[in-house]
């Protein structure tokens, strides 16, 4: 019984604290993500959501706290061990992060090329399959520079799922996209969850898209978790700061311009 329970929790974040230089970015974050759900991490700019994502991926080292991916702590792992764990999950970055010197096909096949010994024909079939999933069949031979923003993100998604990961991280799926394309991407995320039973972590600041796709939402503000709960729970939350975020009200504080600039540049 005990074992079954632990498997259902894919990511556990405990007491996470992170600093950038002198500045504290994350303040005592606790978060549990369950198998097969879409967890949206939401917050405004500078709320620390990207830092949280990068720390979960092992790209940033936290000051304190622990992160377990699939029951294995990733803090203090050696680089090769980290690479091994990362092969089990897919990441789609904000701008797509496609390699501009490689065609769409080469980009998508890169993980296969590096980690498997499949022959070219098999890889081509797998590539076509994943492009089908993201509705981009026939785009294999184009270069990233020839694609639009939405297409780039979908290709990045195809690359992220080429190894059939259990866990998918998605950084700002709707940033810089028009509402229609953004909605398409949201649909795609839900489709992936239902069809392939993936656990998906999405970082976004877009309310609409968050409500569309989320099973649960974590609201982050100034480095702390305000609330974690279902869409309805978040919508009905009484917390003033959550309501401010939901209603897009500007923060009710007197911001001194000089002080704000100092906070941005990190020079005290």
């Amino acid at each position: 019984m005990e074992k079954k329970k632990t498997i259902s929790e894919v990511i556990k974040v405990r007491d996470l604290v992170s600093h950038y230089g002198e500045r504290q970015i994350l303040n005592d974050i606790n978060l549990t993500i369950k198998q097969g759900e879409v967890m949206v991490i939401m917050g405004g700019s500078g709320s620390g959501k990207t830092t949280l994502l990068r720390t979960m991926l092992g790209l940033n080292t936290p000051t304190n706290g622990d992160i377990e991916l699939m029951n294995k702590s990733i803090i203090g792992l050696s680089t090769p061990e980290l690479y091994k764990i990362r092969q089990q999950f897919g990441v789609s970055f904000q701008g797509g992060a496609l390699f501009s010197s490689m065609s769409v096909r080469e980009n998508i096949q890169l993980p296969l090329n590096e980690h498997t010994r499949l022959d070219q024909k098999t890889m081509d079939i797998m590539c076509r399959l994943k492009l089908e999933v993201v509705n981009l069949s026939g785009f294999e031979n184009l270069m990233p520079a020839e694609l639009s923003g939405g297409m780039l993100k979908r290709v990045a998604l195809a690359r992220a799922i080429i190894m059939d990961p259990k866990l998918l991280f998605f950084d700002e799926p709707s940033a810089g996209l028009d509402p229609v394309v953004s909605a398409e991407l949201d649909e795609l995320i839900v489709k992936l969850k239902n069809a392939m039973n993936m656990t998906i972590i999405v970082v976004t600041h877009e309310l609409e898209s968050a409500f569309r796709i989320a099973d649960r939402i974590t609201v982050l503000d100034q480095g702390s978790v305000l609330i974690t709960g279902t869409v309805d729970e978040v919508k009905n939350c009484e917390n003033e700061r959550v309501q401010n975020l939901l209603n897009r009200r500007p923060r009710n504080e007197n911001v001194d311009a000089d002080e704000y600039l100092k906070r941005l540049t990190g020079s005290m």
């Binding site: 991926l57 680089t79 690479y83 990362r86 092969q87």
Partner: peptide, 21 residues
Amino acid sequence: IMRHSEQIDALECMGIDPYRF
């Protein structure tokens, strides 16, 4: 530019060593 556009992060997240690659 690869660092700036997160391509190096992407490599690391695919489990590919950027030094090697």
